[in-house]
């Protein structure tokens, strides 16, 4: 190795180190920036008790007050119905693929799950629209959103279930068979409990994935500024729906105008941005907490 080559190699190495470290730092910038933006602009909304206890009924962008309760309830209901369908079906499909799946039908099923994994949320929403509204003549409502979310959540649950069940050693299955326990009971009483915390992780990640999903809302349910707890009729709010609604209220530059006592047009405070960021912060906190809890559960699963 002559000295000049050595120097060049060292320089290349140092450049690469700088570039790669730079990539990493640059990659973190949006995360920090976004979290900071949402937190700093939204925190003063979410720290009020009003935010958690009231809806936006009758509250315009000029008016102070109101909260996000209607949206939180709507999101909770839509996601709960979605999970109530996706979790059992997803678990069963995962069990099928790991414990029973052999041959062509298993390969077809696995392929179908792959296809579902890649379906854009708007396509899922269109599908539900085409079935429930175009074909069956139904009305837009919250439960249709849940159905579209099922299409998005199902593959997440299946894949995580598969992964977790494959981590259960075959020795435990054999130990159970050798006791004269039938296969289905082995699956239900031995394999699934062993993988349990991992399965919880998968479910929580699936819930987090669909809780912030907006596309189905745009075409499957109207936004209601008041509380509607009925999933099956009428407009219903949700956190992403509320963000979208407030975005529409921003107007240009977020500036609102009102009339003063003399009837002159004067700039006034627009509350839409506050609510927009407040709802965004609420949504992010929910999703991140779900993710953290999921990872903690997952860590317990591996040890």
């Amino acid at each position: 190795m002559n000295a000049t080559l050595g120097a060049r190699r060292r320089a290349a190495d140092r450049t690469a180190t700088v570039l790669i470290t730079g990539c990493f730092l640059l990659g973190l910038v949006p995360l920090v920036w976004l979290l900071y933006t949402v937190a700093s602009k939204g925190w003063h909304m979410v720290v009020t008790s009003e935010w958690w206890l009231q809806s936006q009924r009758g509250v315009g962008f000029r008016d102070p007050g109101g909260g996000a309760l209607h949206a939180i309830v709507g999101t909770a209901e839509q996601v709960a119905l979605c999970a109530a369908i996706s979790v059992p079906v997803g678990l069963l499909v995962g069990v099928y693929l790991v414990e029973y799946g052999r041959g062509t039908f298993a390969r077809v099923t696995s392929f179908a799950v792959d296809v579902l994994t890649g379906i854009p949320s708007i396509v899922a929403a269109l599908f539900v629209y085409a079935v429930a509204i175009t074909t069956l003549g139904g009305q837009r409502a919250g439960w249709l959103v849940s159905l579209a979310l099922v299409v998005l959540m199902l593959p997440v649950i299946v894949r995580s279930t598969e992964e977790m069940l494959r981590l259960v050693p075959d020795e435990l299955r054999e130990a159970s068979y050798a006791l004269g326990v039938p296969k289905w009971k082995t699956v239900v009483k031995v394999v699934v409990p062993t993988a349990f915390s991992g399965l919880v992780t998968g479910v929580l990640l699936g819930v987090a994935r669909v809780a912030g999903e907006t596309a189905p809302l745009l075409i499957l349910v109207g936004y209601a500024s008041g509380m509607n707890t009925d999933l099956f009729a009428g407009f219903q709010a949700s956190l992403p729906g509320m963000i979208n609604d407030q975005f529409v209220n921003l107007g240009s530059g977020g500036q609102a105008y009102g009339l003063d006592a003399n009837g002159n047009r004067v700039p006034i405070h627009n509350f839409a941005p506050d609510r927009l960021w407040g709802a965004a912060l609420t949504l992010i906190v929910i999703v991140l907490v779900l993710n953290l809890v999921a990872r903690l559960a997952g860590r317990r699963a591996r040890t």
Binding site: V89, L92, V93, Y100, T109, A124, F127, L154
Partner: peptide
Amino acid sequence: FAAVTRGAGGFVVVLVLLVAGFL
């Protein structure tokens, strides 16, 4: 039990076919 899990698998397959078919 095997049939039930297989049925769930079938549900996913049918779902995909329905999505493509309906659209």
